[in-house]
Amino acid sequence: MLRERPSRVQTGHGGAATVSAGANVSIRIGTRGSALAVAQTSTVADRLGDLAGRDTELVRVTTHGDVSRASLSSLGGTGVFAAELRSTLLEGGCDVAVHSLKDLPTAPAGGLEIAAYPPREDARDALCSAGGGAGSRLSELPAGAKVGTGSPRRAAQLRVRRPDLDVRDIRGNIETRLRFVTDGELDAVVLACAGLDRLGLAGVITERFELDEWPTAPGQGCLAVEVRAGEAIAGVADLDDPATRAAVTAERLVLAALEAGCAAPVGATARLANGELRCSASVYAVDGSNVLTASASRSVDGENAALAAAVTLASEVSEALLAQGAADLVASA
C-alpha cells in the first residue's frame, strides 16, 4: 500500500469538507489490483488529475473476492469485491475509491458516499467463443457446447436461451476465463463487454447480446467513485454524468426492492434518451425454467426530474415483478 501523504482539510460551501493540498500532494485513489480494475481506475485517475490540477497515485487493495476460488453464489456475491477497499477508504488509506458499480451492495455504506458516476460504457454482455467466424454466435453453438460463466444471472439466461448447452461455473480474471476457451476446456465464455473493451480485448468478442433481450447486472458498465461522507475531493463531482446517474439509480433501486444481492439472477436496464427514462428488469429461475419481466417509462425534463423518475420507475417495475412472484425466484437462487 502506498505511503499516506499529508493533506490539509478546509470547510467548503454547505459545510462539506474539501481536501486541499499543494500541487506536490497526490490524490490517492484506491483500486482492486486486477488488470481490469487498474485499467479502469487509471482512466478515472487521469481524468481526475486533469480536473483537479494535481498528481494522482493508485493504492492497490486485495479483496476477499480476488483471492477466493469459491463460486460467486457460494460467497454470497454482495460486497465481496468491495469490503476491503471501502475499509481502506474509511481508515484514510486512500482519498477516493473506484469500484465497478455492479459489485457494490445497494445498501448505503456508513461513512461513505458515491460522489460520481462517470459516463457509462457498453453495458452489454459478450460471448467469446472458440475460433470466431461462422458458428461463433450463441444460436450457432452445437448442442452440448460447454459455456462458462461465474454469474448465476448469466447462467440462467444461457439456460433460457439454450437449454441444450452445458453451462459451467468458472472463476478467475478475464484472461483466465478466456484461456478456458483458447486451451479447449470450454467452447465459449460470457463476459462483460465493458471489461473487454477497457482491456483492449474487443477483438475476442464474437457476439454482443442486446440489452432488450439479455438485460445485464444493475450498474454493469458503470464505475462508482466513492469518497468519505461530507468530504469533497477537488474534481470528483465533475466526473459525474447525470444521464448515467439516473439510469443506474433506477436499476439499483429495483435490485434493492427485490432484496436481491449483486449475484442474484436479476437483470435490469435503464436508459435516458430523448427526454424519456425507461426501465425494465427480469428475474430468472437459476435453472432457466422461468423468467419474469416488467418495464415502465416516464418523460423527464432536467436532472432532478430524471432522478425523481428513476425512483418512481424502480418502484413500479419492482412491484410488478413481485406481483408475478419474483420474491420466490430470488429466494430460491
Rank of each mutant, 00 (worst) to 15 (best):
L329K: 07
V311H: 12
V283I: 06
R278T: 07
A296K: 06
S318D: 04
A310C: 12
T312S: 12
A308T: 11
A306R: 06
R298M: 05
A308G: 11
L322C: 06
A296T: 12
V283E: 06
A331Q: 11
D301Y: 07
V291W: 03
A305V: 00
S332D: 11
A331T: 00
L321H: 08
L313A: 04
V317T: 08
L313K: 04
G288Q: 10
S318M: 07
R298P: 01
A314G: 07
A285P: 02
L313P: 04
S315N: 14
L313N: 00
L322Q: 12
A305R: 00
L313H: 01
S295Q: 13
S332K: 04
V317C: 14
S289R: 11
L321D: 08
D287W: 12
G302D: 11
S289K: 03
S299L: 07
T293S: 06
V311K: 07
R278I: 04
L329C: 00
N290H: 14
A285I: 10
S332A: 15
A309I: 14
A310P: 05
G302A: 08
N290T: 11
S289A: 11
Y284D: 00
A305M: 05
A314I: 04
Q324C: 03
A306E: 02
A314C: 10
N290G: 02
A326P: 15
D328A: 15
D328N: 10
V330Q: 01
A281L: 10
A285T: 10
V291I: 09
S280E: 13
A323W: 12
A310L: 04
V300W: 09
G325P: 04
A320N: 14
A306Q: 00
V283N: 01
A294Q: 05
L322D: 08
V317E: 12
L329S: 13
A294M: 07
Y284H: 11
S295M: 10
A327C: 02
N304E: 15
L329D: 02
E319C: 03
L313G: 04
D287L: 02
C279R: 00
T293N: 06
A305I: 01
A309D: 05
L322E: 13
V311P: 03
A296D: 11
R278C: 05
A281D: 12
V317S: 04
A310Y: 12
L321G: 01
Y284F: 15
A309H: 07
C279Y: 00
A326M: 06
A308C: 01
S332W: 05
A306G: 05
D328G: 14
D301I: 00
L307A: 08
A294N: 03
V317F: 00
A305Q: 07
E316W: 10
E316V: 13
V317P: 10
V300P: 00
G302F: 02
S295D: 15
